[in-house]
């Protein structure tokens, strides 16, 4: 069971002593772990690219990177996505659209900022038309550095998102169950 839910031993601190052990005494922990296991392995991301980082995003989804082996499939609509990967230079004109896309996503939602441009404006941060970092409009969970990042780096970013999902106590945070 510990193997099945992954990283369980690392999360002993947060869950208390009975998490990750084979004998579970609290049913909410079991439900949490099952929920997190399912959510972490089905992080559907919005098919959305802005600039050259989107080419690396395609490579990551391609046969060598193969993002889908981690259960991540591209979705055409923000309403059915869990994750938005902001890949590329974000202009002010686009920033308002990104904000709207993010608002259309349903909770829980996660954001990866991919590449220097969306991290801080990057190469174009002194340009009049470029937004200086996507974190100025939406909250970012994982920053992936690079210009553009290698597919392996983006995969690492996705694994970080999965770790974050697995460490959440969604029942308690969302429904207030003790």
């Amino acid at each position: 069971m510990g193997q099945l839910f992954g990283h369980a031993t690392q999360r002993m601190d947060r869950y208390g002593d009975d998490s990750g052990s084979i004998v579970q005494t609290r049913v909410t922990n079991v439900i949490n772990q099952v929920l997190n296991w399912g959510r972490a392995n089905s992080v559907w991301y919005l098919l959305f690219g802005l600039a050259c980082c989107a080419i690396e995003l395609m490579q990551t989804g391609g046969p060598r990177g193969d993002l889908e082996r981690f259960g991540s499939a591209p979705r055409p609509s923000p309403r059915s996505s869990d994750l938005i990967i902001v890949a590329g230079t974000l202009t002010y004109k686009m920033a308002l659209r990104v904000k709207r896309l993010y608002d259309q996503m349903s909770e829980p939602k996660y954001v990866i900022s991919m590449g220097s441009c969306s991290n801080c404006g990057g190469l174009f941060q002194y340009a009049y038309s470029v937004c200086k970092g996507v974190d100025q409009i939406i909250p970012v969970d994982v920053y992936v550095p690079g210009c553009p990042p290698r597919p392996e780096a983006l995969l690492e970013g996705l694994l970080k998102i999965q770790e974050q999902i697995k460490s959440e106590r969604y029942l308690q945070e969302r429904y207030g169950i003790a």
Partner: peptide
């Protein structure tokens, strides 16, 4: 008109700050 030499960037665009 941003390509005029005396163009100065505003402090924000729709609430998005233009400096980091």
């Amino acid at each position: 008109y941003p390509l005029r030499k005396d163009f100065t960037e505003k402090d924000d665009y729709h609430g998005i700050p233009t400096v980091r």
